[in-house]
């Protein structure tokens, strides 16, 4: 056990918190997408750190999958942003609330 291992975990926790906070506070959908990327990276960091601690390559393999899912998510998310912006230029996340009770 090395002190730096705990450092990785603490770093990823802070990174995740920053991403979550940004997601909850910012209204620009593109920035929100970036915050999601921050959170995903925090999780990736944890995976690799744990893989290193356990001496297991699977931690890195999982990151590969996360990368793929993140790419797909960004692609679809950006598609939605573009589609929405066509109908309503300059829309923020708060403006898209047609489906409400």
């Amino acid at each position: 056990m090395r002190g730096i291992d705990a450092g990785y975990l603490v770093l990823s926790a802070i990174l995740f918190s920053i991403g979550a906070f940004g997601l909850l506070v910012r209204r620009n959908p593109l920035v929100m997408l970036m915050c999601v990327e921050l959170m995903l990276n925090a999780v990736n960091l944890t995976f690799v750190a744990f893989g290193m601690m356990l001496g297991d390559i699977a931690g890195q393999v999982i990151v590969m999958f996360v990368l793929v899912v993140a790419a797909a998510e960004v692609v679809v998310g950006l598609g939605i942003v573009v589609a929405v912006s066509r109908r309503k230029p300059g829309a923020t996340a708060d403006d898209i609330r047609v489906l409400r009770g």
């Binding site: 790419a71 692609v75 679809v76 950006l78 066509r86």
Partner: peptide, 30 residues
């Protein structure tokens, strides 16, 4: 994941394609 990526690509194309008729969303006050 390969299938997922393919679907995502198709979805992105469908979403981003310029629709023939654009219906503006109802104006909402934010």
């Amino acid at each position: 994941t390969a299938v997922l990526l393919t679907i995502a690509v198709v979805a992105a194309v469908v979403m981003a394609r310029k629709p023939t008729e654009v219906e503006p969303l109802p104006q909402e006050s934010s």
